[in-house]
Write a protein that binds this DNA or RNA. Structure first.
Length: 831
RNA sequence: GCCGGGGUGGCGGAACGGCAGACGCGCUCGACUCAAAAUCGAGUGUCGCAAGACGUGCGGGUUCGAAUCCCGCCCCCGGCACCA
């Protein structure tokens, strides 16, 4: 027996064993093509579907992947030892721009580039020692995967949930494609992928109607998700309730425009209206004298969305159209302006402006000398004072006709009801959420299965023709244009309906479509007759525990919820939510507590560290750094602690003297050790339930320290054996290789990961002697040892008797004594 | 500006309203060794010889007792931000 554990040889050996066992256990594919094989949960077993967000095959597995996947693996392994039938699939999010960029730059076909990367990452993932179900692997660029993206798209299309629309969209000039609203980040409107500012373009694009589910997506009661993700989704959807009503144009009574407001209580304070510059009515209502100015402003506004982005101080500008709108309640005319602070894409593209009670309108009115009538009395402003700033809070309505004197909330209710009753307004709910733009002008994605016929319009490809495959012989040129556009064989096809020459759609789908339903495909990855086998789906779904980064809060996590709801309404699943439980891990930082990046030179390469210390040490250290959701800096010396800990465990298993009897001097310690063990089992178990990996490892370290002390004091025998055996089982999810090795050293039968999780005896956790903290006026003075069963008054008496307490009291009479059973006595005196 | 999450030794971090600093890193000392590494043991919040005092971003409060609860501030991280 060597005197040191050598992870390099041992880990590789066990990985080989696991691989052989997995091969042997692999089921024979079923002849009917359902493809779920024999992998359904066994009768009588609890099922557990663990899912970690699949990686993009960039070609290198970095420490962030380890940080995301290792604790997910530990949790899944723990459930397996608790007797659940666990699936823990893995795959690759294999479509996307880097592959295509490599093709343009280096002439490697995206498919070859991607597959070579996957090849390499599979090996790296294997060194992690995670219990992934490799026979469920999915690769989204495989036509057998993306044909089901197309199939689902066609179902969405039939339901009116997928449609093509000519609209202003966000375009990334670096990625040379349009992107979805969710993929535009921050006030500078940067592309989520490459940080380039996006520009606005008017294009004909495919959308998925996620807004049809805006209301339902706000129902999050059943979701055990981090609060911040729920908040981000809520903000993103941006529901607001108000009233929609219309104004008639005085000069052109046939022209009316709608406005939306959440503050109908301020309607008597309207002093002008503003239309978005692109509003369709603008040209018709503009008076001849103002045509020139209006045209110039429209021109400037159109350009402004593309240039001059860094002028973050947005000034509210506009021009007068010369037209007036008739106030629906007072009949007074108010001027109609256009201004680019009003967005065509939200609400009705027009607003009633109430400068006294809206900051933007106030600034606009100031700039152009428009009146600012106050109609809400602020509780702390002098009545009748001119407004120095917009007051946007609640108050008493003034100068508001029959509503004068009402509280603004009450006025809001009454006005809504009255306007609805009179047929001049209606309750309206607006959402900030926009439909999901899925068109991408790139090659390396799922072709959208539509053919454009000059006569029949957009005609779906029939299911039997799926998949619409990407042509392999595309030309990758640095022109910024999609290769599909110029591929005659791909593009020129007859119309499926009338046979006339037609053009295939050349846009491909956003890669977020791939991951919007991948959790279904994992259940029957080889299913050739459907997107997934409903029997397998019924048995395994929903996902019991989903884990991944928070960066997907308003993208993937919103899209996948939408997909499940849409799939439910199509009749594909009974589920309302695909992932009821979500946990977000934190980010692992460089040694200097900064984000890891090549330019900062603080990148930690897991391959190097694994080569030096072994995968188990990396696993244990990553989980020990701190709470999983907090992330934290990588400390290169910190891993030494994990290495030492694992060596100490191995030495216990390899050399502990449990054949020898307990020395008499250690006999008294034996009961204590047994108690420590049972406490450790309890503590590690609850920690694993709540993702407390760092404290679970701390507990295991403490147990190892206790065992060393016990053995050094002459302990051994059955208790030592039980303790070491349980220790190995508790450690098995964290350090799977070492645990297998130690299990074998202990003579355990079978695989350590097939063993049941250790049980603990609650009676042993509550010890019979307890240490009571004694305080005087809340300050610690002494501790006393008493029997746990000692009644309260006896504990109190014992505390009062103690010399240190007597000294601290200095003869004073205790005024009050608080006894917390089993914990503490606090004696209160007045001096 | 609004919404989340944080602020505890030299460092990463522990702590159902009840012993602040578990566990680890680092450091100090000791054992083993010709020596070193490895390993094992002891110590390690600050001030103090000690008794003790002081300590969880700052200021208040509730409580017998507050890192933990409440109020007001400061700072850091993340998200949203012309959404009418």
């Amino acid at each position: 027996m060597p005197d040191r554990y050598d992870p390099r040889t041992v880990e590789a050996r066990w990985r080989q064993v696991w691989r052989e066992r997995a091969e042997a256990a692999r089921g024979v594919p079923e002849a009917d093509g359902r493809g779920s094989g024999d992998r359904l949960p066994r009768p009588g077993r609890r099922k557990h579907y663990a899912l970690t967000m699949f990686p993009y095959p960039s070609g290198d597995l970095h420490i962030g992947h380890w940080y995301a996947m290792v604790p997910a693996d530990v949790h899944a392994r723990y459930h397996r030892m608790r007797g659940a039938d666990v699936i823990f699939p893995i795959g690759f999010d294999a479509f996307g721009l880097p592959a295509e960029n490599a093709a343009i730059k280096r002439g490697i076909h995206p498919h070859r580039w991607t597959m070579a990367n996957i090849e390499r990452m599979r090996d790296q993932l294997r060194t992690m020692g995670a219990a992934f179900d490799w026979d469920r692997e999915i690769v989204t660029c495989d036509p057998e995967y993306y044909r089901w993206n197309q199939w689902l798209f066609l179902r969405f299309f039939e339901k009116g949930l997928a449609y093509k629309k000519f609209a202003p969209v966000d375009f990334c000039p670096n990625c040379n494609t349009t992107v979805a609203r969710e993929q535009v980040v921050g006030p500078d409107r940067l592309c989520e992928r490459c940080d380039t500012p996006v520009v606005r373009r008017d294009l004909d694009q495919w959308f998925l109607r996620i807004t049809a589910y805006a209301e339902e997506l706000l129902h999050m009661d059943g979701l055990d998700w981090p609060e911040r993700v729920l908040t981000m989704q809520r903000n993103w959807i941006g529901r607001s309730e108000g009233v929609e009503f219309s104004f008639t144009v005085r000069e052109r009574p046939e022209c009316r425009f709608d406005v939306f407001t959440t503050r109908i209580d301020t309607i008597y304070g309207v002093s002008f209206c503003v239309l978005a510059p692109e509003h369709p009515l603008v040209d018709r209502i503009t008076a001849p004298a103002h045509r020139h100015a209006v045209a110039a402003y429209k021109e400037q506004a159109a350009r402004r969305s593309e240039i001059d982005r860094l002028a973050a101080e947005r000034e509210r500008t506009g021009v007068f159209t010369g037209a007036h709108a008739v106030h629906p309640l007072t009949g007074e005319p108010v001027p109609v302006w256009i201004g680019d602070y009003v967005l065509l894409t939200y609400g009705t593209g027009a607003i009633m402006a109430v400068p006294a009670h809206d900051e933007r309108d106030f600034e606009f009115a100031r700039r152009y000398g428009l009146p600012v009538p106050v109609v809400i009395q602020s509780p702390d402003a002098a009545p009748g004072a001119a407004a120095a700033a917009a007051y946007t809070g609640a108050g008493i309505m003034i100068r508001s006709g029959p509503y004068t004197g009402l509280a603004s909330e009450e006025g809001r209710r009454r006005l809504t009801e009255d306007m609805e009753a009179r047929g001049i307004g209606r309750r309206q709910v607006n959402y900030r959420l926009r439909d999901w733009l899925i068109s991408r002008q790139r090659y390396w994605g799922t072709p959208i299965p539509i053919i454009h016929c000059p006569r029949c319009g957009a005609v779906p490809v029939s299911d039997a023709e799926l998949p619409v495959r990407l042509p392999e012989d595309a030309q990758f040129l640095p022109t910024g244009e999609s290769p599909l556009k110029f591929h005659a064989g791909f593009r020129n096809v007859p119309c499926p309906r009338c046979g006339a020459p037609a053009a295939r759609e050349t846009d491909t789908m956003d890669t977020f479509v791939d991951s919007a339903w991948y959790q279904y495909r994992y259940l029957s990855p080889h299913c050739a007759v459907a997107a997934f086998d409903p029997v397998a789906a019924a048995a395994w779904l929903p996902v019991d525990q989903y884990t991944g980064g928070v960066e997907h809060a308003t993208m993937h996590l919103l899209y996948t919820r939408f997909f499940t709801k849409a799939m439910r309404d199509i009749g594909l699943t009974p589920l309302d939510e695909p992932m009821p439980r979500l946990f977000n891990q934190g980010v692992i930082l460089g040694e200097n507590s900064e984000k890891m990046s090549k330019s900062r030179g603080n990148v930690v390469n897991p391959d190097d560290i694994v080569a030096r210390h072994g995968a188990d040490a990396v696993r244990v250290y990553l989980m020990f750094i701190g709470p999983w959701d907090a992330g934290g800096p990588w400390n290169p010396q910190g891993i030494e602690g994990a290495v030492r800990f694992l060596q100490r465990v191995w030495r216990l298993a390899a050399t502990a003297p449990w054949n020898t009897p307990v020395m008499p001097e250690a006999a008294a310690e034996t009961e204590r050790v047994r108690r420590l063990l049972h406490r450790a089992v309890a503590s590690v178990t609850t920690d694993l339930e709540r993702f407390g990996f760092n404290t679970a490892i701390a507990t295991l370290m403490g147990l190892v320290n206790d065992l060393y002390a016990y053995l050094a004091a002459g302990g051994g025998g059955a208790v030592a054996h039980e303790a070491i055996r349980s220790l190995i089982l508790l450690l098995a999810p964290f350090a799977p290789h070492l645990a297998e090795e130690c299990w074998q050293l202990l003579g355990g039968a079978g695989a350590v990961h097939d063993q049941p999780w250790p049980e603990y005896d609650p009676a042993l956790i509550a010890s019979d002697a307890v240490t009571i903290v004694v305080q005087v006026n809340g300050r610690l003075r002494t501790r006393i040892e008493v029997a746990a069963s000692l009644p309260e008054d006896a504990v109190q008496a014992a505390a009062l008797r103690s010399p240190r307490v007597q000294e601290a009291l200095g003869g004073a009479r205790p005024e009050r004594v608080i006894v917390v059973p089993g914990r503490l006595v606090n004696i209160v005196v007045r001096h």
